[in-house]
């Protein structure tokens, strides 16, 4: 709630015309002034002062002839019409921001964005299935390393397992003397 002092200060700043005050204050201030005779008097004195100042400003305004006004107006509009005045296009980043913040353009692009997202989901699902069958080539040396890594430290065991694996693969896929294609 505003007090008397604040209203007096605002009166000076915003002027005697309450319409030019911030909208949020207008109602409260007009009610306050209506109930306070001194404030009401201060407001009317301020209005009189402002009128005097305005008249002073008007009477001291430089007198510019209508002919000069017309001539300059024509000069400005004709210079714009000439090809020499090229409009500066807005920078690229401003265009992008405008495009992404324009609801009409965003709505227009919406189906394409949804379709793209769906396509990405489909591709991802298909890729997941594909990874199970992907062919990876391992040399026997690499296979041995892998078996050691898996905890089969015994050389004989490794040899046996590797041989077994190679044999299996050979049986399934044909001749693969050096490389193993499936783990």
């Amino acid at each position: 709630m505003m007090n008397r002092e604040q209203i007096l200060n605002m009166m000076e700043g915003y002027g005697a015309d309450l319409q030019s005050w911030p909208i949020s204050n207008q109602q409260a201030v007009s009610e306050y002034i209506a109930a306070d005779k001194e404030l009401s008097l201060a407001l009317s004195m301020l209005a009189a002062d402002e009128l005097t100042f305005k008249e002073c400003f008007i009477s001291s305004e430089p007198l510019w002839s209508l002919a000069a006004e017309k001539s300059l107006s024509e000069k400005i509009t004709s210079s714009v019409a000439s090809a020499q005045i090229v409009k500066k296009s807005s920078p690229w980043w401003q265009t992008i921001i405008q495009r992404f913040t324009d609801p009409a353009q965003v709505l227009q692009a919406f189906p394409a964005v949804v379709a793209m997202l769906l396509l990405m989901v489909v591709v991802q699902v298909a890729y997941k299935d594909e990874t199970a069958h992907v062919d990876i080539a391992y040399s026997t040396e690499e296979l041995r390393d892998w078996l050691v890594f898996e905890g089969m430290n015994d050389i004989a065991e490794i040899e046996q397992d590797t041989e077994l694996l190679i044999e299996r693969v050979n049986n399934d896929l044909g001749e693969l003397p050096e490389f193993v294609y499936y783990l």
Partner: peptide, 10 residues
């Protein structure tokens, strides 16, 4: 200035 007699208020 626009201070012709008819405009002059002050």
């Amino acid at each position: 200035c626009e201070n012709s007699p008819d405009k002059m208020l002050l």
